[in-house]
Design a protein around this nucleic acid. Sequence first.
DNA 1: GGCATCGTCAACCATCCGGTTGAATATGGG
DNA 2: CCCATATTCAACCGGATGGTTGACGATGCC
Lengths: 117, 117
Amino acid sequence: MADPLDTVFAALADPTRRAILAMLLEDDMAVTDVAEPFDMSLAAISKHLVILTRAGLIAQEKRGRVKWCKLKPDALKSASVWMQGFGQFEPVHLDAFERFLTAELGDGIEDQVANRP
Amino acid sequence: MADPLDTVFAALADPTRRAILAMLLEDDMAVTDVAEPFDMSLAAISKHLVILTRAGLIAQEKRGRVKWCKLKPDALKSASVWMQGFGQFEPVHLDAFERFLTAELGDGIEDQVANRP
DNA sequence: GGCATCGTCAACCATCCGGTTGAATATGGG
DNA sequence: CCCATATTCAACCGGATGGTTGACGATGCC
């Protein structure tokens, strides 16, 4: 499993791990707190966190006796860049493009993007 | 494995399957032709194609005795939408956006996208 | 020091995954 | 009709995955 895309996508393939990432989006958390909402042993969560760490999606830093987990969303970049190669074929992305352009560049551009003269 | 995100990300986690998707980006292909560049049995490729199909990433249509494989990049939408939740941390894909718009809409739009008056 | 808390390690288990091989099932061509 | 081609099916195998439990090492608090 050499390619980092392998580990990133594999890490994202598990719903528990995606839920953990979503939680960490809110705030950094200690391992015990991450585990709390799940109906699963602490050891299991600990393993999931190792997988997320190896994928580069989170970082763990031990401060005192508690280990803090922190999102590292940069790792998603390689994955999204790869997926982007297929994006040119999704007309659907146009919506996101429009929203992006609207947000980034202000009003007035949408009509041109939507090809509405 | 109920969540479609599970199957999509799991499908993307394998390098052989990603390579297949990249090949299909060029053109639709028959199963045998998909298998040709890989050092792997035809049956193995056939299984990979089943996984990609179940994930909704490709469609297979049998015409005559040959089964054609065709990319269905829409399935990537759910995945990219999910990832987009984390995307606020990625300084976005302006380059690809520009290329997309250039290709789709012809000349003249780039300056506006690049915010060059 | 002594104890509770935080987290991991180790062993184990069931299941899934990616691959193989060989037989089986279309379908098309001469 | 017979044969070659295209693809899948079925059984099997080794290794990874996701979970459990219980013991263990650190760390902080009284």
